[in-house]
């Protein structure tokens, strides 16, 4: 990665919408390393990411933003720190209606939070528009552990929702750049 580029990481369990989100943003076709999904219990889809998803946003005047998606299954967890290396921030995507939501939250936030050093945004999908209870429950769960990233209800099929996650991440990156850490 060159000096005129930075990296945004998308992570979360299988089926949370990482590939969809990267595809929504990327200038080029998303590069995926899909394999046949053998974990139908976790997510009912034919293919899933084994190594990474990759997209790129070209910035006029030079440079760009690399978008990486981690594999969602924990058996490919060895890829997570590799992909997180040098990332400017991480977007955690969760499936709000998955029965293992709490477990997913814990696994992916723990893997990337880094005591708040890594700017993080959480997007929870598949929630009814009026359903704020799950967002509040997630907020409370994380607060008990002194973790307080922004959490949004999103539909990653809607580009505006993906842009919201990116904007919330950029705002945090900017603040970190200012040296605004807790005095």
């Amino acid at each position: 990665m060159t000096n005129d580029e930075f990296k945004i990481l998308f992570t979360g369990p299988m089926g949370a919408g990482k590939t969809t989100a990267i595809t929504a943003l990327s200038d080029q076709e998303c590069v995926s390393t899909d394999v046949v999904n053998t974990d139908i219990d976790q997510c009912d889809k034919e293919m899933t990411t084994a190594a990474l998803d990759y997209g790129f946003i070209d910035i006029p005047g030079g440079g760009g933003v690399r978008l990486y998606g981690t594999p969602g299954q924990e058996r490919f967890r060895f890829m997570w720190p590799i992909l997180a290396n040098n990332a400017a921030g991480v977007i955690v995507l969760l499936n709000g209606e998955h029965p293992d939501l709490d477990s997913h939250l814990s696994v992916f936030v723990d893997a990337f939070w880094e005591q708040g050093a890594m700017p993080m945004v959480i997007g929870v999908g598949r929630l009814a528009s009026e359903d704020f209870e799950i967002i509040e429950r997630i907020t409370d769960t994380l607060l008990e552990r002194h973790i307080s990233p922004p959490i949004f209800s999103v539909d990653v099929r809607e580009k505006d929702d993906v842009l919201l996650l990116v904007e919330a991440l950029l705002c945090q990156i900017e603040v970190n750049e200012m040296g605004m850490m807790q005095a």
């Binding site: 006029p60 400017a88 842009l163 990116v166 200012m178 040296g179 605004m180």
Partner: peptide, 25 residues
């Protein structure tokens, strides 16, 4: 911090500005 007054001067400052412009943000 001094850096707070220097908008867009950070490591990613120019890139963030460009990305926002590129994404219509």
């Amino acid at each position: 911090p001094e850096a707070a007054a220097e908008e867009g001067k950070g490591r990613f400052g120019g890139l963030i500005k460009g990305l926002r412009s590129r994404l219509g943000l």
